[in-house]
């Protein structure tokens, strides 16, 4: 599978390395050359320096051939714009958008983007964990 990832921060680089390790063909775009260099020698894919909202940069990164486009920078607005460029200009079917702001996540999900919100996911996981802990401590209290 060909995967294009915009943003090489903690999330982008984690995804890039894990997809590349599984044998997928991965290209990562970031404005920061050093962020791309931090992928290290283990990374088998391509890197492109530039803004992920820029058509020319995305074309250089081979967007026309990708199966999956992931906008994973730390800036919600950049991710929104990059996703729309991929969807509307390049007609990429599988576009995933990271949005940290839960409210924006809800709005743009309703406008048709495929949104992943790390904050909401983490909050849900923490709640579940907390509820689980609470249950076990309550039942052990009952046993006594």
């Amino acid at each position: 599978m060909k995967i294009l990832i915009v943003g090489c921060g903690r999330l982008g680089s984690y995804l890039a390395l894990s997809f590349s390790r599984e044998g997928h063909s991965v290209t990562v775009v970031d404005v920061d050359k050093e962020a791309l260099a931090s992928l290290g020698p283990d990374f088998q894919g391509e890197t492109v320096v530039g803004k992920g909202i820029d058509e020319e940069v995305l074309r250089r990164a081979g967007i026309e051939q990708v199966d999956i486009f992931i906008a994973a920078t730390g800036y919600d607005n950049t991710n929104i714009m990059a996703s729309y460029v991929a969807k509307e200009i390049f007609k990429i079917k599988n576009v995933i958008t990271r949005l940290d702001d839960p409210k924006k996540a809800e709005i743009f999900r309703s406008l048709g983007l495929n949104v992943i919100s790390p904050i909401t996911l983490a909050a849900e996981a923490i709640r579940k964990c907390a509820e689980g802990l609470l249950c076990t401590s309550l039942s052990s209290a009952e046993e006594k």
Partner: peptide, 16 residues
Amino acid sequence: GDDEDNLVICLLAKQK
């Protein structure tokens, strides 16, 4: 000064 911000502002204003 940022195109991505201007786009999101207009989309929220228009669509939402």
